[in-house]
């Protein structure tokens, strides 16, 4: 996988695991709301799997475009939609978790991606302006 994308993905994975650990701690400390924390955990795991699958697909599309290859390439949206649906079904049918919490958890890796993207862009812009003024030597 490309270095830039893989570094980004590693940070997203780290942030998601950090969020999962917070959820597990809250699950242990507040057992009365375990249906919410459990749903959040299941949704977050599905969201992380979705992010990894998406990164793999994007890398394949990029490699094909760089090689100048022809043919159809898909992003695998229905696979990811089915992973989200599977998480909701497992959470509600098997564990009696809240499906609203699963829906919220499905957004965690994407939110981490967005925040990390903003942060990286801001950091890059600051470094660039320091380089232009000659203060970063």
């Amino acid at each position: 996988m490309n270095d830039n994308l893989s570094a980004h993905l590693r940070t997203v994975t780290r942030l998601t695991f950090f969020f999962l650990s917070v959820c597990f701690i809250c699950w242990a400390v507040l057992p009365a709301q375990q249906a919410w924390w459990g749903g959040l955990v299941v949704g977050t795991v599905a969201s992380l799997v979705n992010a990894l699958h998406l990164a793999w697909k994007i890398d394949r599309i990029g490699a094909r475009a760089a090689a100048g290859g022809n043919g159809r390439a898909s992003l695998g949206f229905f696979t990811r939609a089915c992973i989200g649906l599977l998480a909701a079904v497992i959470a509600t049918m098997t564990f009696d978790f809240r499906v609203e919490a699963v829906a919220a958890g499905l957004f965690v890796a994407q939110l981490a991606t967005l925040l990390l993207g903003f942060w990286t862009k801001r950091k890059r812009g600051r470094t660039q302006s320091l380089d232009e003024r000659g203060e970063n030597n």
Partner: peptide, 18 residues
């Protein structure tokens, strides 16, 4: 470009999955 695409697609696809 791939990293930017990853951020964009992740955001776009979160909504239909939810």
């Amino acid at each position: 470009l791939q990293t930017t695409m990853f951020i964009g697609v992740a955001l776009v696809e979160a909504l239909p999955i939810i």
